[in-house]
Simulated assay, not measured.
Amino acid sequence: MRAEYPGFGRIVIDGKTYDHDVVVYPSGRVEKRKKWLSKNKHGTSHRFDLEELREYLKEDFDVLLIGTGAYGMLSLLPGGRKLVKGKEVIELPTGKAIEKFSELSGRKRVLAVFHITC
């Protein structure tokens, strides 16, 4: 699976461009991030809530990779780390997270959440 972060507000997954946050499952399925779940609870989608994370636990994975945005604004709340206990969790600015995604793809089952703006 190939991913690129050409810049603020856009991400390209296997040649398809998205202009919204995405979740990439280990199977390669891509869906729009359900950030309203966090926003409704915390008033911002920059706090990655446990309830939102539960929505993405549809496939088994080894690594939860979070692209925190161009400026690193998205953060996983502590309850999220407890929910995925025993799994590797990596949080990086989205550009770096894309590099890590490319490095891990094919070697590990990666569940990736990419915030594509701030």
Rank of each mutant, 00 (worst) to 15 (best):
A3H: 05
E4I: 09
E4L: 11
Y5A: 02
Y5G: 10
P6Y: 03
P6L: 02
G7L: 00
F8P: 00
G9P: 11
R10N: 15
R10P: 00
I11Q: 00
I11G: 00
V12E: 15
I13C: 14
K16W: 06
K16Q: 13
Y18A: 03
D19P: 02
D19Q: 13
D19Y: 01
H20F: 13
H20I: 02
D21I: 03
D21K: 00
D21Y: 00
V22P: 04
V23T: 11
V24Q: 08
V24C: 05
P26G: 10
S27C: 14
S27I: 13
G28D: 13
V30T: 14
E31Y: 08
K32E: 14
W36C: 04
S38G: 03
S38L: 04
K39I: 11
K39R: 14
K39M: 15
N40Q: 04
H42A: 05
H42M: 08
G43K: 11
S45Y: 11
S45L: 04
H46M: 10
H46Y: 11
H46C: 08
L50W: 10
L50Y: 15
E51F: 00
E52R: 09
E52Q: 08
E52F: 10
L53G: 01
R54P: 08
R54G: 06
Y56Q: 13
Y56N: 15
L57R: 15
E59T: 01
E59Q: 15
E59D: 12
F61R: 00
D62C: 02
D62V: 06
V63N: 07
V63Q: 03
V63D: 05
L65C: 10
I66T: 09
I66F: 10
G69Q: 03
A70C: 13
A70M: 05
Y71S: 12
Y71L: 14
G72Q: 02
M73W: 12
L74V: 10
L74F: 06
S75M: 08
L76I: 05
L77S: 04
L77H: 01
L77G: 01
P78I: 07
P78V: 06
P78K: 06
G80K: 09
R81L: 12
L83W: 02
K85T: 05
K85H: 07
G86T: 09
G86A: 09
K87G: 01
K87L: 02
E88R: 08
V89I: 11
V89G: 10
E91G: 06
T94E: 04
T94N: 03
G95I: 05
K96S: 02
K96D: 06
K96G: 09
I98G: 04
I98C: 06
K100G: 09
F101C: 13
S102M: 13
L104S: 07
L104I: 09
L104W: 06
R107T: 08
R109K: 15
V110P: 13
L111W: 10
L111R: 05
A112I: 12
V113Q: 01
V113L: 02
I116F: 01
T117F: 06
C118M: 13
C118Y: 14
